[in-house]
Design a protein around this nucleic acid. Structure first.
Length: 690
RNA sequence: GCCGCCUUAGCUCAGUCGGACAGAGCGGCUCACUCGUAAUGAGCAGGUCGGGGGUUCGAUUCCCCCAGGCGGCUCCA
């Protein structure tokens, strides 16, 4: 079921390039491919820097050829393709000025300042113009600009490029120009696109490079969509018009990528949610607020039940807290100070006016909760705590509401109301490392039980503009998390500035069946909240001590996790989670009773089973329940009834006929009980024909 | 929040360059068929063309506002 993007290849070819010889020449002499998906597009020098193939080292240098089909090769193709796009845009829209045009994961974009936004039709004409450019075989020719002033002069019609030139000289600016591969590090370079025959420069762009030798080395591309984007990523800046595209080393690779995109669209949880009758977002309720239908509700309940059980086994205690609270609680926690923008506005209650209209009683602001943790602090504080109680692990499926900006709401994965599987662990400082370690193991094990098994970790560190607490505590907390993360042996990716205001966090990123990554669990360290709420415990020596708090969500949000699993499984949930686990399909009416008996036996053992007694034809029923992704279809006709048997049909179309009813029931029940995440097929269900 | 696009039956979508009873497939319901592994046939019902305002003799169609959605940007406790 898993479908991945076209895999990059790597077929390194290393040669020694003699001083003064072009790297491309040396590689060609060594027999490097010059056409096809493995054709070299650039070279990597012995310092790891990517160079144009025309680059000629000053001394003898070892270089690697970089094939088009490698990750680096693809990036270069995409970057060059972005240039071709920009050239096409300025051909068709001469007034357009240029922003930046870097390669990104699976593609590239280029930003333009244009009089009117691009339309779909524009994309079609731009693709046409780009094909003409590719066909013309323009050469990408690197040129070092003598001075910053010369560059300014050359770029006088390009205000955004000028800004980049000026920024380059300003090391205090936080905008990293190298990241977007636009302006060179030590010097300013321009790439001229040179006509294949006349040698005339057709178009130029300020750019670090490197680039493919000629536009013929961009074998396949597609423009995908248009969007607006703020210049240099800040909403204080003007919005430019961005065009996204993708480019690949071959038509086949492009086609595979487009097919991957189409598969992602087919799996979109919003689409599957409607098709499988799982949930919806009624307009009447409001943006980002879902209702779960019976079938979605079952899946959710099973997900939650299993999680509950595992948490109980791991020493968690279950608590509950209300959805709204007076403002004071979020003043204490700091939410109103730091995150009021993300909260629904308050309800003002209980105010009373006197006869003359003056306020007699001021009233209170009540807020919908965006987080559960302040409530759990109150539970902790409800009585004195002993060190013997620690770690105290409080767990809640807590519904929270966050006023997400209208443009970011997205199905179940970014909602305004959702349920966190939220736990807060209060422990003594010396328990912290051990608790974090077992916590990470617990989290990963549980995610694996739901069928996700490809992880990496992200360490989010302090956002200097938004934090509370002392430097020492942050440093200590961050170091502790880093150690636990490193010890896990998983890949660790830094996320500077990504922490919440009260502490650093580790997040578990999971890759799904399409290779996409999702942030799942978060483990957050918090010294600040215990202080704000003045939480204490009595230590063994009778002294009062401050506990450390760990915030931890495993699914993150139930809704989001539901959406991720739905896409991961393309709607074909594992049998233990499937809303309907088995459907009985009679060949004719006279076989219904037999299947009702089978269904009764299954139901008595906890299986969610239905019998389709409608007067559709059997073939139609098979189709219906296959498209509904039911894992076990149990057919019965005259032969089965006569033999006291049923015939299995699975999602993949495989079948096992004439299985005795007892054996069939046992097989289904045990498959579900084992929580097998694969779809059952004739091959892996142990069924003998009776 | 910002930019662009979109909203026609439960779902997916035609259609109306401002003019006649707004169409199809799927789904639903009814009837017939009783069938061995992905769509049996026939009939019926179902739409204030997202909501409000404006322009016009006339608006589903043009304009404005609002809501909801989509793609991005920004944001993301």
């Amino acid at each position: 079921m898993s479908q991945q993007r076209p895999a990059p290849t790597d077929c390194p070819l290393r040669v020694t390039v003699p001083a003064g010889t072009a790297a491309g020449q040396a590689l060609r002499d060594a027999g490097a491919p010059t056409s096809g998906p493995d054709a070299l597009v650039v070279a990597r020098d012995d310092g790891g820097v990517l160079r144009d193939l025309t680059w000629a080292p000053g001394t003898d240098t070892d270089v690697d050829g970089v094939p088009a089909s490698s990750e680096d090769g693809r990036s270069v193709i995409r970057h060059s393709c972005a240039h071709v796009l920009a050239q096409a845009v300025q051909q068709l829209f001469p007034e357009a000025t240029l922003g930046i045009g870097p390669p990104v994961t699976d593609g590239f974009y280029y930003d333009f300042d244009v009089a009117r936004p691009f339309t779909q039709d524009d994309l079609a004409s731009l693709e046409k113009a780009m094909r003409r450019i590719l066909k013309a075989g323009q050469r990408f020719s690197r040129r070092v600009v003598e001075s910053v002033d010369a560059a300014r002069d050359e770029l006088r019609g390009e205000p955004y490029k000028l800004e980049l030139v000026d920024l380059k000289g300003d090391p205090t600016d936080e905008w990293d120009t190298s990241e977007v591969m636009e302006v060179g590090a030590g010097e300013l370079t321009v790439y001229d696109n040179v006509h294949a025959h006349t040698g005339e420069t057709v178009w130029s762009d300020l750019c670090r490079g490197p680039h493919v030798p000629t536009t013929k080395h961009i074998p396949a591309f597609r423009l995908l969509r248009t969007a607006a984007a703020y210049w240099r990523g800040s909403e204080r800046n003007p919005q430019l018009q961005r065009i996204y595209g993708t480019a690949w080393e071959s038509q086949e690779a492009l086609d595979a990528h487009l097919e991957w995109l189409a598969e992602a669209e087919r799996r979109d949880h919003r689409r599957l949610g409607a098709e499988l009758d799982l949930f919806s977002f009624p307009e009447e309720i409001g943006s980002g607020l879902a209702v779960f239908h019976p079938r979605g509700g079952v899946v959710r309940r099973v997900m939650e039940d299993y999680s509950r059980r595992r948490h109980e086994e791991a020493g968690y205690e279950f608590v509950n807290s209300p959805h709204i609270t007076k403002a004071a609680l979020f003043e204490t926690s700091g939410h109103l100070e730091w995150y009021a923008d993300g909260m629904y506005p308050p309800m003002h209650l209980d105010a009373e006016l006197a006869e003359d209209g003056t306020v007699r009683k001021p009233g209170q602001d009540y807020y919908l909760k965006p987080m559960n943790c302040p409530f759990h602090n109150l539970i902790y504080r409800s009585r004195g705590r002993s060190y013997r109680e620690l770690p105290l692990r409080l767990f809640e499926f807590g519904s929270v509401y966050r006023y997400e900006k209208s443009g970011v709401v997205h199905g179940l994965t970014r909602a305004r109301g959702f349920t966190q599987d939220d736990a807060h662990i209060y422990c003594a400082p010396e328990q912290l490392a051990g608790e974090l370690k077992s916590l990470l193991t617990f989290v990963l094990d549980l995610l694996r039980d739901y069928g996700l098994d490809d992880f990496y970790l992200e360490l989010s560190t302090r956002n200097e503009a938004k934090y509370v607490g002392s430097d020492e505590l942050w440093a200590e907390a961050t170091e502790t998390l880093r150690r636990v993360a490193t010890d896990s042996g998983l890949e660790l990716v830094p996320d500077p500035g990504g922490a919440a205001f009260y502490g650093p966090k580790i997040s578990v990123q999971a890759r799904d069946a399409l290779g996409r990554t999702w942030q799942m669990s978060t483990i957050q360290l918090d010294y600040g909240m215990p202080e704000r709420f003045d939480l204490e415990y009595t230590a063994s020596d009778g002294s009062k001590q401050r506990p450390v708090k760990i915030h931890r969500a495993l699914f993150g949000s139930i809704e989001r996790f539901f959406g991720v699993l739905l896409e991961h499984y393309a709607g074909a949930f594992p049998a233990w989670l499937a809303p309907v686990q088995a459907v009985g399909i009679p060949i004719a009416d006279e076989h219904v009773d037999h299947l009702q008996q089978v269904a009764k036996a299954l139901r008595s053992r906890g299986v969610r089973v239905e019998v389709d007694a409608s007067d559709e034809r059997m073939q139609k029923k098979i189709r219906t329940h296959t498209t509904q992704k039911v894992p076990f279809l149990l057919l019965a006709g005259g032969q089965d009834v006569g033999a006291g048997a049923v015939s299995f049909r699975f999602r993949d179309g495989s079948q096992v006929n004439g299985v005795g009813v007892d054996q069939a029931v046992d097989a289904v029940v045990s498959w579900i009980a084992r929580r097998e995440n694969a779809s059952p097929t004739a091959d892996d269900l142990p069924l003998g024909t009776s």
